[in-house]
Design a protein around this nucleic acid. Sequence first.
DNA 1: CGTCCAATTGAGCAGTGTCAATTACCGTGG
DNA 2: CCACGGTAATTGACACTGCTCAATTGGACG
Lengths: 225, 225
Amino acid sequence: MRNRAICAGLEPDELDALGQLGRKQRVAKGQTVLWEGDDSVVVANVIEGVLKVSMSISDGREQIVGLVFASDFIGRPFGQQSPYSVTALTDAELCIFSRSTFDSFARQHPELEHKLLRRTLTELDRAHEWMLLLGKKTATERIATLLLEMSARLGETGCSADNNALDAFELPLDRQQMGDVLGLTIETVSRQLSLLKADGVINLPDRRTVAIQDRARLQDLSAAA
Amino acid sequence: MRNRAICAGLEPDELDALGQLGRKQRVAKGQTVLWEGDDSVVVANVIEGVLKVSMSISDGREQIVGLVFASDFIGRPFGQQSPYSVTALTDAELCIFSRSTFDSFARQHPELEHKLLRRTLTELDRAHEWMLLLGKKTATERIATLLLEMSARLGETGCSADNNALDAFELPLDRQQMGDVLGLTIETVSRQLSLLKADGVINLPDRRTVAIQDRARLQDLSAAA
DNA sequence: CGTCCAATTGAGCAGTGTCAATTACCGTGG
DNA sequence: CCACGGTAATTGACACTGCTCAATTGGACG
């Protein structure tokens, strides 16, 4: 697991020092670990589980701006406030650091900052891809894209570079959350899934699991670049 | 100008070495300096002008995922391909580096990587904010948000920390480009601007300039968090 | 077996998109 | 300097996607 985590590539003594600074913590499904607008007091590494990163408007509208999986990083280093909330979608285990402690440790360990930079750049690429989806794609295309993305990201095991996209997987999201990721309502999500099922592109054995039956077709429908 | 640029904070000798690696280049309005999907051969620092960062779908739909101003950084360091295109919205001047040269220089200069990391984190915050806009805001809210954002970013002079939001400014975007930033059509953009003008919130002396007449109201309409 | 909540499905509507016509602006050349 | 042409922007009428509100179904669990 450790090899993809933020600490990967550090010298053993560095890794040890970093380990001293963090503490493991379990969080239950539904629990929020970071609040939008609050002082940015902690950052963390995800050891296990899936979490959502979300932003909202005062009237309650919420957009999920990211999903975080095992070995991913959460929190806003080098910033006074957290621009978003982070909430566990499944039971999860985190390795938590005080933000200020992490910041100064990072500044003294260029290799760590380098890793963090690469991660942040990848995250930015993903955000851009999602902006294209939110700004220009139709409901069908959004659903298809999400299913392929979940298939790919849940297939990453963390060990080496095996990108086995899964053909059947359990969604860590309910319909409302899928809507909040895609900029759609719960009803539109449901309708689109029903259509894909009726067309034989996917199957939905139960409310949380998806089985991709015609990946090529799903890729066409996703309107990839 | 230099104080906000990527090279800020480097030791004089480092700054000198970096300067050796880059070359200044003028680009004309409309010219594309980076193509989506192409090998990521260059990165650059913007010296002057405004550029758009965009992604598109094969059928021609385009989403602008970022706007780049003087002292901002463009290109994808540490990546094989450029995930987006970059095109000049005004005549511009860049300081261009070979990507591989820049990458290895950066790896040897932690302070530079640190600056780049901070920048990338800020860019990611902006992308998240925009995802909220694209996923959840109405047309009116989007327009109001864009006008305030342009007012703020065009007001940044680059010298010290003066954030003078401008009450009148020239948009570097035409209506189509505003639409491509906001996930709206040209007609919707035009209608919303006309409405704001009719309500006395803004004035539109000519097709490119905006004068904010009631900033408080515009802020309300923008549905900020 | 009944209850509860998520998900699905239906009907009608609203907000944007589409397509088309008109107007305003700006540069050009007479 | 003014007339003209071309492009960008505006405005109008209508269509359509996705949203809202409401009713129904379907699982999961006690």
